[in-house]
Design a protein around this nucleic acid. Sequence first.
DNA 1: CACGATTTAATTTTGCGCGATATAAAAAAA
DNA 2: TTTTTTTATATCGCGCAAAATTAAATCGTG
Lengths: 152, 152
Amino acid sequence: MDDQQLRLNNQICFPIYSVSRLITKAYKPYLEEMGLTYPQYLLLLVLWERDELSINQIGEKLLLNTNTLSPLIKRMEKMNLLQRKRSKKDERSVFIQLTDKGKALKNTAAPIPEKLLNTLLTEDVTVTEIMLLKDTLNKWSDILLEKQHSKD
Amino acid sequence: MDDQQLRLNNQICFPIYSVSRLITKAYKPYLEEMGLTYPQYLLLLVLWERDELSINQIGEKLLLNTNTLSPLIKRMEKMNLLQRKRSKKDERSVFIQLTDKGKALKNTAAPIPEKLLNTLLTEDVTVTEIMLLKDTLNKWSDILLEKQHSKD
DNA sequence: CACGATTTAATTTTGCGCGATATAAAAAAA
DNA sequence: TTTTTTTATATCGCGCAAAATTAAATCGTG
């Protein structure tokens, strides 16, 4: 058995998993100010770029299925951030439209990217894990590219 | 307002979030064969490296708190993968010990890293997202390092 | 038109993450 | 020794993720 391969830091699973949670945590205080959760923020990012998408189109952008999006959207409708509008053409599809409140949040969100960078700088563990993940990904992408070419 | 900054692909949140989910999904078929979920597998990776850790020590390695670990460990105890043992020296601490069944799973898990690599090669979306995240992280780590130095 | 197949959305169920809080044991302070 | 604080774990509640199921609408073919 290859013990080395099974070590926590030699697999891609752990670094990506922990950094993902650490990044979510770093965003949290700014999102809480706005009354948003992390996935809600991601959905708004999509809608701020392009409004009036169907649930399916949103799913394509966020790589999420309706079973995740449906409840998420319902909660956000209750918060008066968006509206669902059933399509006249195809009664099965629902199009999502930002409310004025939802549109206005874009201004509040504008300084977040800059603020986040500063937050990360104060969190040593997070920066360390990001660097580890960076190295892991660079190593993995080399391996992936090499394997891809050897198949041609 | 800086529209560019708020675009989905220019923030670190989305790439890390989606790749994390894609990687979890790639592991899933192999873990299902073993009857494990993703976090359960991570916990086993830790215990295969070093058995008899306290819940606290496990939390440090996985960057998880007891509010996540406690129920996780209880489920795995029911599956007969591990045992909890309250320390005699310090009655507050609970030490986790693999059962024979838990130890044996290590052999089943051994080929997973190799298999995963091949799985990733067949999933274009995942590889694309990994490459995007790699670029994003390389850019971010440059920015982080530069900012760190300018503070000294 | 009829009817089965397909597509799409919603619902249900299970298992995390994590903030807030609780509880009990151990250590430190008074 | 008593009180206070700290530490280790557990519990609760909410919000995702995602598989499986259900329901509704549309399409394809005869």
